[in-house]
């Protein structure tokens, strides 16, 4: 079954996400650690926005704030026009690590948001089965995480993020743990899925090509403490396929981002 074909059900409207002068300082045993200097950015409803930055610059921190897991030290995040004050039902998250519960089956893991939010479990279960098939795990519903490969676990985490039909998806380097081949495949599948559902996606990555390939816009962050170095539109036509990566514009955009990223991370970029 193709990814897109299975997404036949009508989907709820997606929502805008806005970061408004968000700052964050961690308090640690040794003192204070500024993680986000100031970040403002906006993702229009239904758009795919990537956040690109060197590792340790504060990308995960930014997503945690958007998820309502961490209150910003200053500024605010708005979701569908409401200030985020805690975890919200209309948000789905994919973490860098699969974060599955080892004592639950794939199906039960995928159903975590539905159980937690008290959704109708019959409907949720059938949705979960569809999603599990969609991410290529059909037949593994009753398997436990330790019986799956890392890539398969990450796919289960992906299915989980969709089960409560969120309007906004936050993805924190979801493919970082995958090998190169699987990474490209998942990117293609995600794109196909997204093009049908058109949820707002905030996609954190440190992969330049991945960011350009997937996104409507790419926001480049500096080294920690993070601030926005560049915020560019990716005007490549959709639907994007493997051929997109061969387009001159694709290469130019990647090159521009790479230079910016080099400059932002203080490394010497060759002229």
């Amino acid at each position: 079954m193709s990814l897109a074909a299975a997404v036949a059900t009508p989907l709820p409207a997606s929502a805008a996400v806005e970061f408004d002068a968000v700052r964050l300082t961690y308090r640690t045993a040794t003192g204070v650690l500024p993680a986000i200097e100031e970040v403002s950015l906006a993702a229009a409803p239904g758009s795919f926005v990537s956040i690109l930055g060197p590792s340790g610059c504060g990308k995960s921190t930014l997503l945690k704030i958007a998820a309502g897991l961490l209150p910003p030290s200053a500024g605010r995040v708005q979701l569908a026009g409401e200030v985020v004050r805690g975890p919200r039902r209309d948000v789905g998250i994919v973490f860098q690590q699969p974060t599955l519960l080892p004592w639950q089956t794939v199906l039960d893991n995928v159903l975590v948001p539905a159980r937690s939010q008290g959704l109708d479990m019959r409907a949720a279960r059938s949705r979960a089965m569809d999603l599990i098939a969609l991410v290529g795990l059909a037949g593994f519903e009753k398997a436990y995480p330790h019986e799956l490969s890392g890539g398969m676990q990450q796919r289960a985490g992906l299915a989980r993020a969709f089960v409560h039909e969120p309007a906004v998806l936050l993805m924190d380097e979801p493919f970082a743990a995958l090998d190169a081949l699987n990474r490209e495949r998942m990117a293609l599948e995600l794109l196909e899925f997204w093009s049908r559902s058109r949820r707002t996606v905030l996609f954190v990555t440190h992969g330049i090509q991945e960011a350009v390939f997937l996104s409507d816009r790419v926001v480049v962050l500096s080294n920690r403490p993070a601030r926005v170095v560049e915020d560019i539109a990716i005007p490549l036509p959709r639907p994007r396929t493997l051929d997109t990566m061969l387009m001159p514009d694709f290469t130019l955009l990647c090159d521009r981002l790479r230079r910016n990223l080099f400059a932002a991370s203080g490394a010497a970029g060759r002229a």
């Binding site: 039902r89 159980r115 937690s116």
Partner: peptide, 19 residues
């Protein structure tokens, strides 16, 4: 990270305790 995940998906403290 797993506790964060549960919070993010709206799980109550009690559910996090048991599950």
């Amino acid at each position: 990270a797993v506790v964060d995940m549960m919070h993010a998906f709206g799980a109550s403290r009690r559910r996090i305790l048991w599950e």
